[in-house]
Design a protein around this nucleic acid. Structure first.
Lengths: 242, 242
DNA sequence: GAGTGGTCTAGACCACGTA
DNA sequence: ACGTGGTCTAGACCACTCA
């Protein structure tokens, strides 16, 4: 193998990582699928197994793939029960987890300037707006508003959401081939408006935790804007810093 | 017949990682110090350089050490400017960062039951209580209350805090040998009480972001409880999910 | 038993920082 | 020129899963 070539380029393991990410983005392997073995990938990319291993280890650390000894390397999926609430940091004070869902509406609207900016769309491009509640023990704790670019979610409607047993991200992945990879959240304390107060069963003006999320799919492309209002009376947003 | 033996030993790189952490905890190398080279550590632990490298890479991922090509591996320190706000996720909406500080008080008190539980102390053990403000552009945005076990922070007082130019965590590390490694935060939206409202310049009852933090030093030992109230009018708590 | 990822080793060479 | 970490390779052996 040639060893010396002007290296302004990324290291080989990083190039391989990006090639595998591209393959994931193109749908060559879908969430839940097994990737080829390390040896096969090494062959395909003309690198040593150790180098491919390093690329896969980094992807596992980013939750792009999941490695299971004796079985293989699998594309990460929101379908797996363990990943159901990967992006939802709200836990009950007593440690309870899990929610029931109540869809309020799902409709086609035009992107506001702000939504367009967050999703890198043009203003007034069609987006799908979803509003729903998350409940714990019959009590609403989260009011979520979502905006999704219609061109990635053609056909998404109330019937589809209500018929699907899993989480929204699992639905997006299964029905629309959009897998969420990471997200950025901005948190604030706000006073409840009249409508939110009514839906969450609190007084108008009560403090709520506002969570604005932009979620990204492969290649850092933003595909969801979400604004959540969390009622943090008996729940809290748990965050590990390191 | 499945062979079910007691417990498999941890892998060698993990054992080595723990040995190095113990050395850090014992103060063999202090924050900012250079560790011995990989080769020297390999010699010391009787392992191959590759195994030591893996241990160090994992420690670098946890921000326990910092690796610099050509220079060496260094114990992570809160003294470095880059780490000044490692645990403070509040950023201005315009992206500005950095604060000025105003100490309100620093005094010796007895641990409440709740504080004792968080810090794994006995109730009524002596702790040091610190209250301070963080300001951005002359405006108070954070009201912080801290509780520290006195046995780890003997001699901490207002004079010391006011005389020290860096962050509290840098002070703790330099003067008391307590280096913060990670933290857990619980976030809620709350209504401002009278005193907090006055200090932060908001109306009583205004929504504030409550941040309860427990910070840990080497070996997952809790050494600080902190309750922050963040005024999130022109600032937000930024969090990356992956 | 065959195939997978996990651990551990050994060594070559490169890039970087310092003296 | 030297010592450091960074990359890449090659191969042995172990642990786990499944047919």
């Amino acid at each position: 193998m040639p060893k010396t070539f002007a290296r302004a380029a990324a290291p080989l393991y990083e190039q391989i990582r990006q090639l595998i990410v591209s393959a994931l983005a193109s749908g060559e392997w879908k969430p839940g699928d097994a990737l080829p073995s390390e040896a096969a990938l090494a062959q395909r990319f003309g690198a040593s197994p150790g180098t491919v291993r390093r690329a896969l280890d980094e992807m596992a650390a980013e939750h792009l793939v999941e490695r299971r000894q004796g079985r293989g390397t699998f594309v990460a999926t929101h379908t797996a029960p363990r990943n159901s609430y990967r992006f939802l940091r709200l836990v009950a004070d007593d440690g309870a987890t899990g929610f029931t869902r109540e869809l309020l509406h799902c409709r086609r609207v035009r992107a506001t300037a702000e939504t367009a900016r967050a999703l890198q769309l043009r203003t007034a491009e069609p987006v799908i707006e979803v509003r729903r509640l998350l409940l714990r023990r019959e009590r609403a704790v989260v009011l979520d508003d979502l905006w999704l670019p219609e061109r990635h979610f053609e056909g998404l409607d109330s019937r589809l959401i209500n018929a699907y047993p899993g989480t929204l991200y699992a639905l997006f992945e299964e029905r629309f081939g959009v897998h969420m990879v990471r997200a950025e959240e901005k948190l604030r304390a706000v006073a409840a408006g009249a409508d939110a107060a009514a839906l969450l069963g609190v007084a108008a003006g009560a403090p709520l935790l506002s969570v604005e999320r932009v979620a990204y799919t492969y290649g850092d492309r933003p595909v969801e804007l979400r604004r959540g209002l969390y009622h943090t009376q008996a729940d809290h947003y748990l965050n590990d810093l390191n």
